[in-house]
Computed example of a mutant assay.
Amino acid sequence: MSSTRRRTRTIIVTAALAALAIVIPTAVAVASPTHSTRDHGNSPKPTIVLVHGAWADGSSWAPVATQLQRRGYPVLVEPNPLRGLGSDTAYLSAYLQQHTSGPVILVGHSYGGAVVTNAALSDPDVKALVYVDAFVPDQGDTILGLLGGGGDPNALFDFVAYPGAPAGDVDLYIKTALFPNLFAGGLPAPISAELAAAQRPITLSALTEPSVTAAWKTLPSWYLVGTNDQILPPAVQLSMAQRAHSQIVQVRAPHLAMLTKPDAVTDLIVTAARATT
Score class of each variant (00 low, 15 high):
R7T: 10
R7N: 08
T8S: 11
I12C: 10
V13K: 00
L17P: 04
P33K: 09
T37R: 09
H40G: 12
S43Y: 09
P46Q: 07
I48G: 05
W55H: 10
S60E: 14
A62Y: 10
V64R: 03
L76K: 14
L82G: 08
L85Y: 07
S87I: 12
S87M: 06
S87E: 06
T89I: 07
L92W: 13
L92T: 11
A94M: 13
Q97F: 02
Q98C: 03
H99K: 14
T100Q: 05
V104S: 04
I105F: 01
I105Y: 01
G112P: 01
G113V: 06
T117Y: 06
A119V: 05
A119W: 04
D123W: 14
A128W: 01
L129A: 07
V130P: 01
V132R: 03
V132M: 13
F135Q: 06
G145R: 10
L147K: 01
G149C: 08
L156C: 06
F157T: 03
G164R: 03
G168S: 05
F179A: 06
N181Q: 15
G186T: 04
L187A: 05
L187E: 02
A189T: 14
P190L: 10
L195V: 01
A196R: 00
Q199I: 13
T208N: 08
S211A: 15
V212M: 14
V212L: 15
T218Q: 15
T218Y: 09
L219F: 00
L224S: 12
T227M: 00
D229L: 05
D229S: 12
P233E: 05
P233C: 03
M240A: 10
H245A: 02
V251I: 11
R252K: 12
R252P: 10
A253Y: 00
L259Y: 08
T260A: 02
A264I: 02
A264W: 02
T266D: 08
D267I: 06
V270I: 11
A273N: 02
R274P: 00
R274L: 13
R274M: 09
T277E: 14
